[in-house]
Design a protein around this nucleic acid. Sequence first.
DNA 1: GCTCTAACCTAATCATCGG
DNA 2: CCGATGATTAGGTTAGAGC
Length: 584
Amino acid sequence: MASSGSSGTSSVTANTASARVSPAKPGSLPLASSWKEIWEQPHGDVSMACPLPPPDGWKHAAVDRSGVVVFTVGPVATGSRRRRLVLRLSQKDALQALFQQNPYPGIATRERLARELGIAESRVQETRPERPGERGPVVSPSQTSILVQAFRRDRFPGIAAREELARQTGIPEPRIQVWFQNRRARHPQQSPSAPGGAAATTPPAPEDRRTPPAVQSTSPPLRPSPPQESMPPSAAPAAPFGAPAFWVPGTAPGVCVGQPLMIFMVQPSPGALWPSGKPPPPAQVAGPWAVSSPAGTALGQPGQGAILPPAQPEAHIPRWPGSPYGEGAAPPLEPQPQPRSLPSPTSLLDELLAAAGAPASPGPSPGAAADHGVDPALPGAPSLLDGLLVAAGAPASPGPSPGAAADHGVDPALPGAPSLLDELLAAAGAPASPGPSPGPSAVAVQQAALAGTPSLLEQISAATGIHATPGPSLGPCAGERAHLALPGSPSVQVALLAAPGIPGSPGPFPGSSPVVAGAHPAFPGSPSLLEEILAATATRDTPWSPPGAPAWDEGVEATLEAPLSEEDYQALLDMLPGSPGPGA
DNA sequence: GCTCTAACCTAATCATCGG
DNA sequence: CCGATGATTAGGTTAGAGC
């Protein structure tokens, strides 16, 4: 229907900026002759308005409840959109072949193929044809609660937020997306800052909907800078869960403005936005075009951010609107109690610290997973520490797997079975795919990790190549699910968060899990992968059963697909603010 | 720069389920 | 029957990838 609906997405940049000129304090801002002028203002003084529409790719600022312009603007971050996936013909052939062989392969098969194709498992799954009558499970009240909470914070969650919600709830991300679509359509009043529903009546500007750059999911998330630069850690914990916080320039450090009426944008990393290396245009400050009345803005949009000097363009994603983790939480690297399943930087750090100081959680040794019919996502899978140690180059591991590239750096070195991809292509009569570029050799990374016996964190860093990741990278992991605001390169994020020891983790991401890598079937002596697919199809890859099917008939995959066990899920819920508490 | 198209959106609609 | 909700479809925009 093509009505104006989505055109909301098109309306904001320069052309309709004027329509949004309805600041809380109309006319109260002095005009700047250019955005450059605004940018050159002292940082604490952004109370200028530029009559000119913002350059394309630049976001606007906003005012807080008191009408104060609180934010600078910057280039539009391509954060919320899933990185576009363009499959090569060979990849398509392989996927077709796979689904021809087994329309509903299990997680292990999908992951394996994903690794070989160099794409995310979720992408593999997306290509899976939906069986008749297949519907996502009914959303439970607790799941709905999480979603509603997220909806109140952000009506337009980016892919990263959706993935996170999917992880939290166990609901497939596409279902999450549909849920939000329906919710927006049917509950327009549930806007975080416009209870009256005014915000929802106006389609948000495309930029407004963007998730801050650091929460970009599909392309490697920007590496957060030291949080202190952008947000006083001391104030961060004070923010309530789910409450976006804002920092006003010129105010005392750590002063949290609270939930704003207006959304504002952050200046994303120049590296991400200006791949040419050319420095971005001067950042800009709020202009009247950007400051709209509550009724004129979809306030539920990702609006959090922080004011930062231009010198730290990457440092200001202290909070993630689409995710609970960034909100009200300490900045990255600030340890905070978090559910283990939450891939927040804090939880990650918790994991690491806990792993360094405590015995590994019980579980089979690394490498015991996939090849032995034990999916890494299953309870009892190797712990995160195990995975990290494997990633760090422990024996019996083929080495770290910083994303698909590393896997391809490892597998070819392993004599033995042909790749799954080759077999599929062969089965389909298609030529073998050259596959994704190998990328950095995992072996090399592993060796680097073994040089000396550094601390666990150092090992992790070395193993995952975090040090070698100069800021936001658009590396081979771009297609992976993102783990927002996670310090470090996408590689480490993928490697760490994919570790099956984290409850709620969907398990190893394609080509990412060191555990899976350790158990990669492409070892000498392993059976044909295609045979494995077929065999697995008959055994482990029991198709998902629609709701209502007997529990015993749901098969293994149903278990494998479930990111959270009921217990973990309940524990997660208990940890959420507003929860009645454990046992409730 | 241009084209293609994935990703995303709204609006309308249908299907299902429970009260 | 009706409301709530999940899912689908149609049609649109945006932006990334490839040429």
